[in-house]
Nucleic acid binder design. Structure first.
Ligand SMILES: Nc1ccn([C@H]2C[C@H](O)[C@@H](COP(=O)(O)OP(=O)(O)OP(=O)(O)O)O2)c(=O)n1
Ligand SMILES: [Mg+2]
Length: 654
DNA sequence: GCGGATCAC
DNA sequence: TATGGTGATCCGC
């Protein structure tokens, strides 16, 4: 019954290398697949090798702050519990549980597919001798490691010199993003045969709803996935693991169950699902990272089953942890809506670079110019402009800071202008010693969409033949079920989870004050907002549970829960799959170009290339020019910049 | 709107 | 000797 767990109450004394710090140093991917011999020994080595470095000191600082945060939460808990009938509180929570349970939908077969050691597997394709050898991809930092290397404790995100200490024979390879991107596209197009509306969630993973496919082909979900995985291996020589469950969160967790080249299907039964979640580490829940794992551990929660045991406390600390989000995890309930990501869902574009610490302003500005050049290239190439520029810099102590500036109009994407804005933001901070500098533009405007709509009044179309709800309804997506909070509005609009949650905030920005653009703003897409509902898709990027599980000192107010996800898309470098990112439909064999209407016999890459051609730089330039006519290069730019009120003239790079 | 934090891949 | 890059969300101001 209502019983507090004060055991974990005492924050671990942060003595030299507390258990917490050791785990922190081990990195965010420690608990991933690839069983290591002795994690404790590995952690010891990592700490030993890291000790004394700036990086290590910074991790120690963050660990101390986290410890203080835990102390605050425990005090908060103890105060909240005073004079409260915990049994009563539990009864209230139990009502909520009943409501959530009523929303459980087991009618859809959702699959999460995830390539095995992706970058590493692609490297093996190009050099078969690597198979069975311990190797890692990534220079300064490991992007991923072969399963052989994982046995030694090598993990994503780990410094390569640390990895070599753990595995002296480790082979370290440079990255080949173009190859990963190419293989990603191929694999995704195979998955799309099973669900044309699949949601790409990163360069190597995605979600599919195979309910329809299984019906039409009279095949079981398991056989379907077994066949799909076999075909991927036959056609690409890459192995993929998969999870089959009633919703995205469960499917993702399941895809990790039999990780290297395996699959796992969860029983579609409430009791079986709850049993599955009961002993599952809370850390396995998408959206719960290292920090929230520790915060929850401090109040006696390590597994999803503990969520129920501590439900009274969680109810009292709702603001800090997000009760509903955790209860859904406990129940194994989440969204089962699978929809492709949309290009317009992108919310930012940026570039950043790490270098040997610099203090000389001239040299720092030189680095800033480099990132500005890169950013200009990407923005022009992909057709974006925006209204806010954020400068990011990391001190040689690894402390990260950001400085932003917003404009009334769409900014110029010329590198000189981006640089000038960044310089303006950095100058007042200056005497600094930096190891990284970056620029990011947000509040984006999609110039390709503009070019497209100008080219003709095209509408959005991507849907699969039958798609369910037409995007015409005003709100609510109505997929198979869930994703939007049906009825019961109220609750806090919070929870949104990584796209797994069921309810969501209904914000829809779309502000688009349209200063500069009047035309296409979006007059032709009433449904835009609908598609971008925060809910659904998980993505490669995603937010954090922020409020959800975390909290900050005193006050707090909002909702909780992990955020919703965002569009698929891999990094610039990282491969990527402009597939789902482009506003033009799905891919398959015979595709119709949304611009010229010609039927093309090609795959996604081919279609994308063709579309780019159709939209042509000309069309984009026109759009960009139109925007720039009113864009503001920024005063700084005017100064540092050459002649004329830099208006158009954008184009320049090739 | 800004800055810091957290998370994912 | 040495610890990446891209993108998203959320909270408190
Ligand atoms: N911190 C990280 C994590 C991942 N990746 C890249 C390299 C991975 O190959 C790819 C996919 O990430 P996964 O988390 O799916 O890891 P892997 O596919 O490598 O291994 P697994 O078999 O565990 O899925 O993303 C990266 O660059 N940096
Ligand atoms: Mg993978």
């Amino acid at each position: 019954m209502a019983e507090l767990d004060r055991s974990g109450s005492k924050p671990p004394s942060s003595t030299p290398d507390s258990d917490s710090l050791l785990r922190r140093l081990a990195g965010p991917s420690v608990n991933k697949a690839g069983l290591a011999k002795d994690q404790t020994e590995i952690n010891r080595i990592i700490a030993e090798v890291s000790k004394g470095s700036k990086f290590y000191e910074n991790e120690k600082r963050k660990d101390r702050e986290l410890t203080l945060r835990i102390e605050r939460i425990l005090r908060l808990r103890d105060e909240a519990v005073q004079g409260v009938d915990l049994n009563k509180v539990e009864q209230g929570v139990d009502k909520l549980i009943a409501q959530l349970e009523a929303k459980r939908d087991l009618s859809q077969a959702i699959v999460h597919v995830d390539m095995d050691a992706f970058f590493a597997s692609v490297e093996v394709l190009d050099n078969p001798e690597l198979a069975s050898k311990p190797f890692a991809v990534g220079q300064g930092v490991v992007s991923t490691a072969s399963y052989e290397a994982r046995k030694f404790g090598v993990r994503s995100g780990m410094a390569t010199f640390v990895a070599k200490r753990l595995c002296p024979e480790l082979i370290v390879l440079p990255s080949h993003f173009d190859r990963y991107s190419e293989m990603s596209s191929r694999v995704m197009s195979i998955f799309r045969r099973y669900d044309p509306t699949m949601c790409v969630a990163g360069c190597d993973e995605g979600y599919l709803n195979i309910t329809r496919y299984c019906d039409e082909h009279s095949i079981s979900p398991e056989d379907c996935v077994t066949q799909m995985r076999r075909i991927v291996q036959e056609e690409t020589s890459l192995t993929v693991s998969a999870g089959i469950a009633p919703n995205k969160m469960l499917a993702k967790i399941c895809s990790d169950k039999n990780k290297p080249n395996g699959q796992f299907k969860l029983e579609f039964e409430p009791e079986a699902i709850k049993a599955f979640m009961h002993d599952l580490s809370i850390r396995k829940v998408p959206g719960v990272g290292r920090v929230n794992e520790r915060l929850l551990e401090s109040i006696g929660i390590k597994t999803c089953g503990d969520i129920f045991r501590q439900r009274a406390v969680l109810s009292l600390l709702d603001k800090q942890f997000g009760l509903e989000f955790l209860l859904q995890a406990y129940l194994g309930i989440a969204s089962n809506v699978v929809q492709p990501g949309q290009r317009e869902e992108r919310k930012s574009i940026g570039a950043e670079r790490t270098f040997n610490a610099l203090s000389d302003p001239a040299k720092i500005y030189a680095k800033l110019e480099e990132v500005a050049t890169e950013l200009e290239h990407d923005m022009v190439e992909e057709g974006w402009t925006g209204k806010t520029v954020t400068l990011k810099y990391k001190l040689n102590t690894f402390e990260v800071h950001t400085r932003a500036k917003s404009f009334d109009r769409w900014i110029s994407t010329r590198k000189e202008d981006l640089f000038a804005i960044g310089q303006e933001l950095l100058k007042p901070e200056l005497p600094l010693t930096l190891r990284l500098i970056g620029l990011r533009v947000t509040k984006l405007k999609d110039l390709k969409a503009e070019a497209e709509s100008k080219a003709r009044g095209i509408k959005r179309f991507f849907g699969s033949a039958s798609s369910t709800g037409s995007p015409q309804k005003k709100r609510r997506i109505e997929g198979p079920q869930a994703d939007q909070d049906d009825e019961d509005h109220d609750h806090s609009p919070r929870l949104s989870q990584d796209g797994f949650a069921i309810s969501m905030p209904g914000y829809d920005e779309d502000i688009e004050t349209d200063l500069a653009d009047a035309s296409a703003s979006h007059g032709a897409e009433p449904e835009t907002s609908l598609y971008r509902h925060p809910t659904a898709k998980p993505k490669s990027s995603s937010g954090t549970p922020s409020h959800s599980l975390l909290s900050t000192p005193s006050s707090s107010k909002g909702p909780s829960l992990p955020p919703s996800t965002s569009p698929p898309r891999m990094g610039k470098h990282s491969p990527l799959v402009l597939n789902d990112s482009n506003p033009f439909g799905t891919s398959s064999s015979a595709l119709e170009c949304p611009i010229c209407s010609r039927m093309l016999e090609t795959d996604n890459d081919g279609l994308n290339a063709h579309i780019d051609f159709c939209l042509s730089k000309q069309a984009i330039k026109e759009a960009q020019a139109a925007s720039l006519q009113t864009a503001v290069p920024s005063k700084a730019a005017a100064n540092a910049e050459e002649r004329g009120a830099g208006l158009l003239k954008y184009k320049k790079k090739g």
